[in-house]
Design a binder for these strands. Structure first.
Lengths: 222, 222
DNA sequence: TCGATATTCTAATAATCCTTAGAATATACG
DNA sequence: CGTATATTCTAAGGATTATTAGAATATCGA
């Protein structure tokens, strides 16, 4: 068949994207990068690997054009090359969640301890937040909050939660979120809040999930 | 960090999906499987590889739970484990198309020769088809047409096009589609039609793309 | 039951990728 | 200008994955 050669080339190109997302560490980096631009060191830290190894993984992501890099002084700043990259990550994770039982089990383990406020429809949550009935707490680092955050969300990074906890009212429901279902910042925040007598629950989804769901326009998030 | 262990496990699970879609041949199989259930031999044929190798690739897809297999007499019937698998394929391809220039170029090569009827909005096309103003021609094998097809589409498999071409009116626009942008059946059909004096163009998208776009409910397609 | 068919399993080699360490580059700061 | 810092590049071994061939399994029909 005369088209075989062209077709092979097409699928090989898509497979470049596939290869880029075939490594756990690269996926973790993509998830962190979905929150905003990051340096190599930060990514290495976040994923718990050596900087040289992080750099090598980033090279693969760069070659697949999933991320772009630009120098900022002594540092390199990596960022996703478009919103479709976040959407791909969300899609991959949701396919994995849907079909891989083991993943579902491990996720339950991570979400355990927090009330399953998940089921509450997204709109209802935003409604309650608008009415001041519930506090949506963004526990990610502050720069990620500034890059984009949920409507009505209030920033209180996990690192500062212990000192600044008094800022939060004890008599209101608190819903904490972070980078997404795999992120542990909100889990830790909820643990700490509950230990101190607050009514707190983890919201599994983060910005990438809300954006991928189409319920949020990017104007609402800044 | 006490969560590191669990997190690693989560990303490893998603990476199983990533690994499954990191091979050109597996991607090609997924695309064919998006059209309906297929046997190993058919998939090997469609992708131009040995049956044993096809079986090995299918094992990887099966272990990632992207496809399921069931025996039907002497044959094994493989099928996608859900519509989200098709959506993943479409998403992967669209990310690749968006960011990999080389892919865009190769695609243009494949779509060359057919008029760029692409830009016409999907709804407009369906409207014109409903009005009998244009003929939407499904040139895939008949079983794929029966599994699902575009509204108002008429089946005329490429293999029968030469003999049955007289069934088509010469005075109407014909828009041929097949499995998706990478599929060459429609390209070949259009080539043949134009050589015989018809006004024909290739529609780049196939069923998976239309379904992923959300413009089509699955009721409209049977 | 036997042979034919469709597919998988096993084992082995070739190809590719991961990871690490050391050298190289590029920028900022003194 | 020289030194420190952040990162990349190169090279090399170990670990995976791809591909192929041969043996094994499971079904159908004679």
């Amino acid at each position: 068949m005369k088209f075989r050669h062209i077709k092979n080339h097409l699928y090989e190109q898509v497979a470049i994207i596939g290869k880029a997302v075939s490594s756990p560490k690269r996926l973790e980096m993509l998830e962190v990068l979905a929150q905003g631009a990051k340096t190599v060191e930060l990514l290495a830290d976040a994923t718990g690997i050596d900087i040289k190894l992080a750099s090598a993984h980033l090279r693969v992501l760069r070659e697949a054009r999933l991320v772009t890099a630009q120098r900022e002084g002594r540092f390199m700043s990596y960022q996703q090359s478009g919103p479709d990259v976040s959407a791909l990550w969300v899609q991959l994770r949701s396919v994995a969640e849907e079909h891989l039982v083991e993943l579902k089990l491990a996720l339950d383990q991570l979400l355990a301890g927090a009330e399953p406020l998940d089921r509450e429809s997204s709109q209802q949550l935003l409604q309650r937040a608008r009415d001041g009935d519930v506090i949506i707490l963004d526990v990610r680092p502050q720069d990620e909050y500034h890059a984009a955050h949920l409507p009505y969300a209030r920033s209180l990074p996990l690192a500062q939660l212990r000192q600044r906890m008094a800022e939060l009212p004890v008599d209101k429901d608190i819903v904490a979120y972070c980078r997404g279902p795999f992120c542990v910042l909100a889990s830790q925040a909820v643990e700490l809040l509950i230990a101190n007598g607050y009514r707190a629950a983890k919201l599994a989804d983060g910005m990438p999930e809300w954006l991928a769901s189409g319920l949020l326009t990017s104007e609402e998030t800044a």
